[in-house]
């Protein structure tokens, strides 16, 4: 961003300590070298992702041993659960709690490796199967919310950078407020207006399209606030960048400049925020699914946390962490593909 349009006498010298231009060295090995570099990148990233996944499993394994008291009791819902001796014995046997901790740890990893997440205490069901059933609903919610947020953000960012000062101020004001809105409050307001007031949508998320509208909008608004700000910042940067000057000097129209050049630059940072957006949506899903009484991963997590259903909590945490790691990896790959500048680093 530095020195846009400034008489930058020293750029030649400023570049001096840096490495030679990328083209200089990339030329030798040619395409083979590039493929090699891509393979190396993927290998190191996948290894990194695997490490994080292992570390998450390890961290959670040891963290639940921080719970005061008997771990078997904790797994059965804490001291208040008044679990029977047989149940405790069964849990101890299942988790090998009578074994040395190293053995327990290795066994736990082994179980995770084959996708065995244990049995939910509160629901008495296989956690993996349970989550498998809950996942699609939450995924649908999150993807729709993401799409709506992108559209809202893009619309707002484009509109507010097009006109004069008023639309710019209104646009950025709306975005700041939207980003500060807690999900539960949006949900309350939307229910008040559109369910209680107008009666357009049900206050409880019934199956079908009508039941999806309010949860999706609730999730999308704050996300759109953040994405919109990021997009607008990069839109403004791109609109002032020298390459748009040369595009205009070539005879490109304002609309053409935006379509051909600027939008791509505006979308880039929003893409790079996908990992963050995923986390934001998952957190939001906990609140939204609870308020709209919609079955899904978020509500399952909240119930599990409230009931201290440790196997279920661990299951959700691991699934979400794994998904997050995959999303981040894909985001980075997408960015690498879209923006050759990130490849040099």
């Amino acid at each position: 961003m530095s020195g846009v349009g400034a008489p930058d006498r020293g750029s030649a010298a400023a570049a001096a300590p840096g490495p030679a231009p990328a083209g200089g060295r990339g030329r030798g090995p040619g395409d083979a070298g590039r493929i090699g570099a891509a393979a190396r990148w993927w290998a190191s990233r996948v290894a990194g992702a695997a490490f994080v996944l292992w570390a998450v499993a390890t961290l959670t394994f040891f963290a639940i041993r921080l719970i005061p008291g008997d771990p078997a009791e904790a797994i059965l819902g804490g001291p208040g659960s008044q679990a029977s001796d047989e149940a405790l014995a069964a849990v101890r046997a299942e988790y090998g709690l009578d074994q040395p901790i190293a053995v327990q740890y290795v066994r736990q990893l082994g179980r995770l490796a084959v996708g065995d997440l244990g049995t939910s205490y509160s629901l008495r069901e296989d956690v993996a199967a349970l989550l498998g059933a809950q996942l699609p609903g939450t995924l649908l919610l999150a993807v729709l919310a993401l799409a709506v947020a992108w559209l809202l953000a893009l619309a707002l960012a484009t509109w507010s950078t097009r006109g004069g000062r008023v639309s710019a101020a209104v646009g950025s004001g709306l975005e700041v407020i939207a980003a500060a809105l807690p999900h539960f409050w949006i949900a309350i307001v939307l229910i008040l207006v559109f369910s209680t007031g107008l009666g357009w949508f049900p206050p409880i998320s019934t199956p079908g399209v009508a039941g999806l509208v309010l949860p999706v909008v609730t999730l999308a608004i704050p996300l759109a606030g953040f994405l919109g700000q990021v997009m607008r910042e990069s839109l403004l940067d791109a609109l002032e960048a020298p390459f748009t000057v040369s595009a205009r000097a070539r005879g490109e129209s304002e609309a053409g400049v935006r379509q051909v050049h600027v939008l791509r630059h505006a979308a880039l940072p929003a893409v790079s925020l996908s990992g963050w957006a995923f986390g934001f949506l998952v957190s939001g899903a906990v609140v939204v699914e609870t308020i709209f009484a919609r079955p899904g991963l978020g509500r399952t997590l909240l119930n599990a946390v409230t009931l201290r259903d440790i196997p279920l909590v661990l299951g959700v945490v691991l699934v979400v962490a794994a998904a997050y790691i995959v999303v981040t990896l894909l985001t980075d790959a997408a960015q690498r593909l879209l923006d050759p500048r990130t490849r040099a680093a």
Partner: peptide, 9 residues
Amino acid sequence: VLFAFPGLL
């Protein structure tokens, strides 16, 4: 590793 517990998680 901590970032792999996104948001409220």
